[in-house]
């Protein structure tokens, strides 16, 4: 049997209303053969975890375009682990270099900056999923 495609949730937490980036990423991941469960804007950690369980996803991708990544991303990882899931959480958006280390320490599997190429985006998701599988 061929390997099943990677399934990934793409969502934004909180009130941050920009969805251009997340839509671009959705297309990149689809074009690299993944199944994107697109949740879009204004999600909560709970709606994302419910979706992760019901959709049995391999990864959760969060798009963040305000400075809240330092609180929201670790909170998401914590909520995922508290729910008993091992699903890797990947963050996309503008993250200053000095935040990378603390995010990794908080359990964020990978961070993708706005300059990432399509290949980098897909490869990063693949790697995060394979490390977890």
């Amino acid at each position: 049997m061929a390997d099943a495609p990677i399934r990934i949730i793409l969502a934004k937490l909180g009130l941050d209303g920009h969805d251009r980036g997340i839509k671009v990423v959705a297309r990149i991941l689809r074009d690299s053969g993944m199944e994107v469960i697109y949740l879009g804007l204004r999600q909560t950690t709970d709606t994302i975890i419910s979706a992760a369980e019901e959709e049995d996803v391999d990864a959760i991708g969060l798009s963040m375009h305000n400075a809240s990544h330092m609180t929201l991303a670790p909170a998401m990882v914590e909520a995922v682990r508290a729910a008993g899931l091992e699903t890797p959480v990947i963050v996309g958006g503008i993250v200053p270099d000095e935040d990378l280390e603390p995010l990794a320490a908080a359990g964020v599997a990978a961070v993708l900056g706005p300059g990432s190429s399509a290949e980098e985006v897909a490869a990063t998701v693949r790697q995060a999923v394979n490390t977890n599988r």
Binding site: G33, E35, V36, I37, Y38, L39, A51
Partner: peptide, 13 residues
């Protein structure tokens, strides 16, 4: 997508 096998599943939202 018939080309890549990927999909954007947007019903749930």
């Amino acid at each position: 997508s018939p080309l890549t096998g990927g999909a954007i599943l947007g019903d749930r939202v």
